Simulated scan of single mutants.
Amino acid sequence: MRVLNHLELESQLHRSGMGTAAAQQRKSLARADADVDVITSPWRDGNALDAAFANLAFEESFFEDYDVAHLNMAGPVSLALARHAKANDVPLVLHTHVTAEDFRDSFRFSNAVAPALKAYLKRFYSQADLVLCPSEYTKGILESYPVDAPIEPITNGIDVDSLDGHERFRDETRDEYDLDGTVVFAVGNVFERKGLTTFCELAKATDHDYAWFGHYDDGPQASKTTRKWTQDPPENVTFTGWVDDKRMAFGAGDIFCFPAKVENQGLVVLEAMSCGKACVLRDIPVFREYFTDGEDAILCSDFDEFVDAVDRLADDPALRERLGENAKETVQEHSLDHVGNRLVDAYRRVIDD
């Protein structure tokens, strides 16, 4: 089976959750119990310009041959690839990493754009033979649009190997960013949707060091909220910006705090759990779907619950350890071996149909 697994703008998105998810799909397919040949570029000879030249000079096809097109983005190139697949009877799998709901509170003007994005995504996903998404929550969102295509949730999974050895980064990273004691931390791009204001207000309400490891915009595309907090953070909050190795964050931090307002799954939570970190999360549907309050995470409904959870965990190392060990067990359900076999099964079904 030859599969095109494509991520438009991959060079720009490799730092994002979308880029991580696509990379994990490919790694999981290499582990699957089936012979799958994965290509990442649709263009013959590897790029569009060479393919165009070959088409003009030798009347060769622009496109590689593949049995299934699996697209991870909804941009103009992906739209063209989807139309090519439909025109040539190539089974089309579209993967939902973005919805209008989780696009809100990301960039400047993202809330104004979200309604138009919803209308576009409804049409884009409806052309698929199968839509994959990371959770039942996201499936429900797509059905509400409504998307007129079969929809199947498959976890994005977790690449445990990519986090191996995170412990050895602890002292060096804490020294670099002047972190001390019990460190409350977050990982990923800095957006209000990720719970930025709650994170900073929580720091003001408690006495611990806080660190957010991840890129933040400071140009015109940044939201006012992002600029406000990153340019003038509370005294006990450090915004590190992009770090070269995510293991630095998971080595340095003790309590993973992720008060995101909307998530389709939250890959970074699985990464924190894989490292045995106690997780404090907002009580939203997708986290209720995957995690159990008091067993492998603490889910908080309001600000006072966040304060209580962080302070309890800071004062109780045994509780942190228990939650962390249970979280490691939860992560096993999201192994890349499991993801790869689910993807192969999905490909076979769209081919057979």
Rank of each mutant, 00 (worst) to 15 (best):
L9W: 13
A48G: 00
R104G: 02
P76V: 05
V147M: 08
E152Y: 07
V36M: 01
P42Y: 11
T182G: 00
D293S: 11
D105F: 09
M1C: 02
C257K: 00
L94F: 06
L132R: 04
A116W: 12
G19W: 10
I151P: 03
V339A: 07
N55M: 13
V268G: 06
I298T: 11
Y145N: 00
F256Q: 02
L319I: 00
Q12R: 14
V331A: 09
E325M: 09
N189I: 14
R104W: 02
R288M: 01
L281I: 11
K118S: 15
L9H: 15
H338A: 12
G253F: 02
A69I: 05
A57W: 13
N236V: 09
H208I: 01
V262I: 15
W212H: 11
H334D: 10
D254Q: 05
D217H: 14
T99K: 03
N47S: 14
Y216G: 02
T173P: 06
L267W: 07
T198V: 15
D209H: 11
A30Y: 02
G181Q: 05
F239Y: 09
G157R: 06
P150R: 10
S335D: 15
G340I: 13
V307K: 08
D50G: 11
A272F: 10
A309T: 04
L13D: 13
P234W: 08
R174I: 03
Q231Y: 08
D50L: 15
C133V: 06
G214F: 10
R312I: 00
A149C: 07
A74E: 14
Y125K: 05
A252W: 12
D171E: 14
H84V: 03
